[in-house]
Amino acid sequence: MTTDEAVGEGSRARRLGGHLVLGVLSLLCAFPVYWLYATSLRAPEDVYSLSVLPWPLSTASYAEAFATSDVLGMLLNTGVVAVLSALGQLLIALLAAYAFAAWRFPFRRLLYLLFVGTWLVPFQATMLPNYVLLSRLGLLETLAGVIIPTLCSALGVLLLREHLNGFPKELLDAARMDGRSSWSTLWTVVVPALRPALAALGILLAITAWNEYFWPAMVLQRSNAVVQLGLRSFLGTEGNDWGPLMAMAGLACLPVFVLYLVLQRHIVNAFVRSGLK
């Protein structure tokens, strides 16, 4: 009995310590986000106040943000960019990964390595050629110009192929015996079986595209069509307009939070299953 208690006490203390550390860390992570929303809800004259609770509450900053810029239009544009970019990457990654995993063709390995190798090429190396190409195509300052160069992602191909490699080959053979072509096998057998992985990857890609700042800034130049660029309009040489800035940033974060809350299980699953953890 006594020895049992000693063991129990020791491990309880360690558990308590562990929870304490985790608690402090999550507070550290959550605090800036809290401060963002707190600032956005202060009255304009309290914006520099350091009180932890924003009081009195005021929606003046939101009103100003909506009055000075087309917030809803920006959110909509950003949504379109995020969704199309994610869907495009998913579709291309799915087709490529399926070909690499299910077919035998000459130079398969080499092609795959090249494909994945593009992942290692830094963005800075491709941005100028991409920019020049877009300008020749007349796609600068358009949403299409933001979306098209992001459509193919080596990361998606890599992750989906790993999933497909674990996919039982006999199922593909069975579908062929049952009269499905390769194309219809993809849609009737592979996609339904990979749905959790596809959903998770899609969410990750969409969030990444939503948060992107630099590439849209290059393509869209002075126009503020997406919300991350809209934030610029509140930053000025003679000082920043903190209230509306925080209000808009808060709005920009909301869809990501909502997506995360609703699909949390899928996202965590995807990380675990793709071995990224």
């Binding site: 006999e170 049952d178 009269g179 009737t188 079986a193």
Partner: peptide, 23 residues
């Protein structure tokens, strides 16, 4: 097949009907 190769996302009825739907 040795492993049966049943489609994991389909019910028994839809597994059995799969070759007919393909046709």
């Amino acid at each position: 097949f040795q492993s049966y190769a049943l489609y994991p996302h389909l019910s028994v009825a839809r597994n059995i009907g799969f070759p007919l739907r393909a046709r």
